[in-house]
Amino acid sequence: MDPSQFSSQPPEAYKSSGKSGMPAAPPPAYQHNPAGYPPSFLNQPVPQGPYTQGPYPGQPAVTVQPAVFVTAAPLANPVPDYLAYSIFTMLCCCLPLGIAALIYSIFTRDANNSGQRELAEKNSKTARTLNHVALGIGLVVIVVIIISQIVIRTAR
């Protein structure tokens, strides 16, 4: 193969021929656009400077606001979450109310960590109330069981 046959010009078979009704026009010359510059056109001036920004003529400007991320810090004086009390009432007194109290205790801890005092106080109060009710029900059930066992054993 002869390297002189391979040039930047297309072979004669691909140039305009009788097959195409369009006249053969050479492609436009390559225009070098440095990084950061939009493509330039004949009727548009080339911007000066390495970091020029702005809208094209006839286009409106768009202003973009910077993103702001707000992170909450944990509370300095956290609200009590009654987690141990909830686990005790769940295991020893009343399982359904103990589970509900445990869930509210976890919600209280999450609100303390995210800095939401009002939510933490509300969840803490709910957890404490559920724990008190569960403890009361558990004590009543234990007392009833003890009394019934004493009555059954003395009736024999």
Rank of each mutant, 00 (worst) to 15 (best):
G36N: 12
L102C: 01
A100R: 02
A61M: 08
A73F: 02
Q48K: 14
N123T: 12
V143D: 09
T126G: 01
Q9H: 08
V141Q: 13
D81C: 08
S7L: 10
S20G: 11
A155M: 10
Y56N: 11
T108G: 03
G49N: 11
N113G: 07
R128L: 12
Q48W: 02
R109I: 00
A127C: 07
M90F: 07
V133W: 09
E118I: 03
S86N: 02
L97R: 10
N43C: 04
T126C: 02
M22Y: 13
M90E: 10
A84E: 15
K122Y: 01
C93Y: 10
L135M: 15
P57Q: 14
T89W: 00
S16A: 13
F41S: 09
I146W: 13
S17D: 15
G21V: 01
L91T: 08
T89S: 10
G49M: 12
E121P: 00
L75E: 06
A73I: 01
L130R: 02
V46A: 11
A25W: 05
A13T: 10
T154A: 15
S40T: 12
A120W: 04
N123R: 05
G54Q: 11
T63P: 00
P3W: 03
P45Q: 07
N112I: 00
N43K: 10
V70D: 06
A100M: 06
P39T: 09
P28A: 12
Q59D: 03
Y30I: 04
Q44W: 04
P80C: 03
R109W: 06
A127Q: 01
L135C: 14
I103R: 09
L75G: 07
Y14M: 13
V151G: 06
D2Y: 02
R117F: 01
A84K: 14
E12Q: 15
V141S: 14
L139T: 09
I145N: 14
S4A: 14
A73Q: 15
A76D: 12
A111C: 07
A84Q: 15
C92S: 10
I145R: 15
T129H: 07
Q65V: 04
A24G: 15
T154G: 06
G49R: 10
A76Q: 14
N123G: 00
R153F: 12
V133M: 13
G115C: 01
T89C: 09
P38R: 15
I106V: 09
N123H: 08
I137S: 05
I106Q: 06
G49L: 13
A155Q: 11
S114V: 01
D81W: 01
P80S: 12
Y37L: 12
Y104H: 07
A24D: 14
